[in-house]
Write a protein that binds this DNA or RNA. Sequence first.
DNA 1: TCTGGGGTCCTAGGACCC
DNA 2: TCTGGGGTCCTAGGACCC
Length: 372
Amino acid sequence: MDAFYAGVELLRYPQFKSIALVIGGRRRKDSEQEPGMRLSQYTGRGVATTATYEARALGVHSGMGLMKAAKLAPEAILLPADFEQYTRYSRLFKAAVAEIAPTIEDRGIDEIYIDLTEHDEETAPLAQAIKDNVRRATGLSCSIGVAPNKLLAKIASDLDKPDGLTILTAADVRTRIWPLPARKINGIGPRAAAKLQALGIESIGALAQAERALLATHFGAHFGDWLLDAAQGIDERPVVTVREPKSISCETTFERDLDVRRDRELLSHVLLQLCERLSGNLVRKGYLGKTVGVRLRYEDFRGVTRATTLSLPVNDTEAIRQAARVCLKRVRFDRKLRLLGVRIGSLVSAHAAHEINSASAASERQQGALFS
DNA sequence: TCTGGGGTCCTAGGACCC
DNA sequence: TCTGGGGTCCTAGGACCC
């Protein structure tokens, strides 16, 4: 989807169309009045989750701190993110695609892979039909890349944004993919891109021609081989239509850095709230988890994680909080805290957990019998 | 006045077991 | 009596993605 959150907001507030618009920051309780304020009015620690193409032209991009964005685009309109609304539109757009092509891999709220292998229609009209149906269902535009695999499709989808449609074959890799910066490959992030640049490798084409041994030296054999494959446009990953979640987490960044001793009560309250939210999400999604962990970020932005694995999966607030406190006892609090998070992993479905728990209760009864 | 919140996957070391 | 070779599970950190 193109600038998805902003697109959804513009359906509600069409008066902000074709001006720079940034989505981000928390909803303010006090400002229920008129929607949208100037970015220059913003104070806080939020980041831009989305910027419209007008705002991007001024240098604002997602992930940028709003204070920094305000310097670049003080007159831009700022709207807080409304995730419930985005989730609704996410469902609508995925359903619209599924009406035409049902083999879909979820890649988050605004992105999917579609397997068109079994479709006999001509590619361009088929892709256009998907775009049309998404627009009909949501009023929003999307960009589609059609290619022999997911890696190339992802790059292709980005070549003609917004409202784009790009069809790529293996023969196009040299001419259309190789000139692009290596960073365009999904999986090469800022760190790997910087390391490649230090090796004199800037483009995907240069990466494709790099020595395997050189890449293995700097990135390890596994990642090195993957880099080389990716640069050649090779990718065998299937479109995965069902996936079980691995972990669920809740975290919050404080409005000001907190001192563990002075702000003890507040922190304890925040921890409780996080555990309540996490428990609620677990129950709603029908999972229990065995490994409970905490995540902290200090004022200097460095972070630590601690985790502990319980003997039985849990989903209730108190069990999560108890485990989180065990983790927190193993953390050094020598700096102020900026963020606190709680995570639960080793998930099992509520149904499976029920069976585990009754089996364990049965074996406990049996042991009781042995000792009595 | 830097830097949200929700995830996945990989690596590496240690404990522990046979 | 100077030290094998598997394997699994767990923890912690880091890179990356939307």
